[in-house]
Each structure stands twice: as C-alpha cells, then as structure tokens.
C-alpha cells in the first residue's frame, strides 16, 4: 500500500510540473499576442501591393512573367510549415498528417519538400521524404527578411523550371481555439488574382469615387511598366509567404497555449484526487490508532 510519504512526493512532483505548464502557457500567450499583432500589421501591405499589382496588370497588354507561367504539374514543391518545438497539442501532427495525405494524392508526381520548422524537417526526413531545403527557428520570431529569403528561393526554383508548382501546407490561425489546416497553391500565381480588378472595383469604390477618378487612367512611368510589374510580382509572393509564416506562427502559439492550459487544469485535478486519497489514508491511520488506544484502555480497566 502507498504510504503518506509516497503521496506527498507524487503531489509535489505534479505541482512542479503544473508550474512549468502554467509558465509555458503564459509565455505562449505573450508570444501569441505578438504574432497576432504581426498578422494584423502585415495586412495593409498585402492589400496595397495586391491593389497596385492589379492596377499595373490592368494597364498592360500582356502579363507574361515566369511566375505566372503554367506548366503541366510533373514536379511539385511542397512547403510544409510546422513548429520548432513540441508541447503544442496536435499542431505538428495535424500538419504532418495533412502533408502525408497530400503526398499520397500526388504520388504519381515527383515531390520535393521544403520544411519550415524543426519538427517537420526531422519527421519528414525520417519518413524518407525528399527534403530539398529547410528553415528552422522561424516561428519564434517571424521577420520579413526570412519571408524574402524563402519567397526568393521558391521563385527561383519555379522560374528555373526545377518545379512546376509550389504548394504550402500550413495551419491558418482562425482564433485561439481553432486552427484550420490549409493546402494553398503559391505558384504559379493564379491569373484570377490579377484579373479581378473590375470585380474588386466594387469593393474599393470608396477609394475610386472619393477622388472622382476613372479607374483606368494611364500611368506616367519612370521606367517601363513591365519592369515594375516584374518587380512587384516577387514582392507579392514574398508578402504571401510572410502571411503564411505569420499565420502558422500565431496558430502554433495558440495551440501551445491551449495545450498548456489543459495540462495545467489536468494537473490541478490530479492534485485534488491525490490529496483526497492521501487524506483518506491519513484518516484511516488515525482511526486505527484510536481503536488501538481505546481497546488498549478497555483491556487495562477490565
């Protein structure tokens, strides 16, 4: 039978675990706030670059560009975004499961993998995926420089014809409780994105009408519009990559926060249960001693 001392030890150990999980929860919450701010701060730029890109595209006769070129999809690059650390619930597992499903669906094609995050890199390597590039320690502090690097790399691979399509598998941050798994096509850039200037005109009517300006005035250029367009497209790709990195980081922190919150709660429950058990045993001991004293006294007086 477990003694009182055993219980005390168990309780102490659970308590210290709980302290760790609680601290991790607070750290994750703080990081989540930062990541969320980052997601919001990145939106105006993404919106404006898309708008400028569209208005440039609308003024051009042909929008041929290596990043827009469509080829039969024979070789695919899958960008898989995971975290660098675990203890975040099913976050990494979910992404990797989705990635595996994706690989199976596309198994007739040649798949290369770019792993972002240590967990994904290690697991995918172990499973024998063709990991051609990896970036780690990204999610702790997402900055634009890394998005630029990754965007540049995939743009280069695509333009050089090394791959025919680029997909990203990642977690999208919906809210603190919910992450949504996404498989998004990064390249080739969908021409519909550029063409929807007229469809979007309705939305941005506020901007258009405010200055009483016809949507299609010709621009003055300092340099050929084609050059500007070719310069803008990679920036758009980088902004997309940046958004995905930020989403994934925010989702990771949210997942870790929820996981650590439930771990802390489970620890509390366990402590309560153990304390109850311990008290029962203590009480049993006291009762036994009392009976012994009473019966001892009874036998002495008789």
């Amino acid at each position: 039978m477990a003694t009182l001392l055993d219980f005390r030890r168990r309780i102490r150990s659970v308590k210290s675990t709980q302290q760790i999980t609680r601290a991790m929860k607070f750290v994750a919450a703080a990081k989540l706030r930062r990541a969320q701010d980052g997601v919001f701060a990145a939106r105006p730029y993404a919106r404006e670059i898309l708008r400028v890109l569209r208005s440039a595209a609308a003024r051009m006769e042909s929008t041929a560009h290596p990043l827009l070129e469509r080829r039969p999809e024979e070789r695919i690059l899958a960008v898989v975004l995971t975290g660098d650390r675990s203890l975040c619930g099913a976050f990494n597992t979910n992404v990797l499961r989705r990635a595996t499903t994706f690989f199976r669906e596309q198994s007739s094609k040649n798949i290369q993998v770019m792993a972002i995050g240590k967990k994904g890199r290690d697991t995918l390597r172990k499973r024998g995926a063709n990991v051609v590039a990896d970036y780690i320690n990204v999610s702790a502090n997402v900055d634009y420089a890394i998005a630029k690097e990754i965007g540049g790399k995939i743009g280069e691979m695509y333009a050089a014809g090394e791959v025919d399509a680029v997909y990203a598998v990642y977690n999208e941050f919906k809210n603190v409780m919910v992450q949504r798994l996404c498989t998004a096509k990064l390249l080739p850039i969908d021409p519909a994105v550029l063409a929807s200037e007229t469809a979007e005109a309705g939305q941005s009517a506020a901007i258009g009408t405010e200055h009483e300006e016809a949507p299609l005035v010709d621009y003055l250029y300092e340099e050929p519009l084609g050059d500007i367009f070719s310069g803008l497209l990679p920036r758009y790709l980088e902004a997309e990559v940046f958004r995905i990195l930020l989403e994934s980081a925010a989702a990771e922190h949210a997942a870790r926060m929820t996981a650590m919150d439930s771990a802390t709660r489970n620890a509390s429950e366990l402590i309560d249960k153990l304390t109850l058990e311990m008290n029962k045993i203590r009480q049993a001991g006291i009762t036994k001693e009392l009976i012994e004293i009473v019966s001892g006294a009874a036998s002495a007086t008789s």
């Binding site: 005035v217 010709d218 003055l220 300092e222 050059d227 500007i228």
Partner: peptide
C-alpha cells in the same frame, strides 16, 4: 525618393508608379 531621383508630388498629380 524614386530609384531615378527624388520626385515631388502635389495634390492632383497624374497617376504614376515608380520604384
């Protein structure tokens, strides 16, 4: 600060894109 030099913009400037 344009790539090819500074350009001044006043209200009502003609539409323009520059690096």
């Amino acid at each position: 600060p344009g790539k090819e030099g500074y350009l001044g913009v006043l209200p009502g400037h003609a539409p323009l894109i520059t690096e």
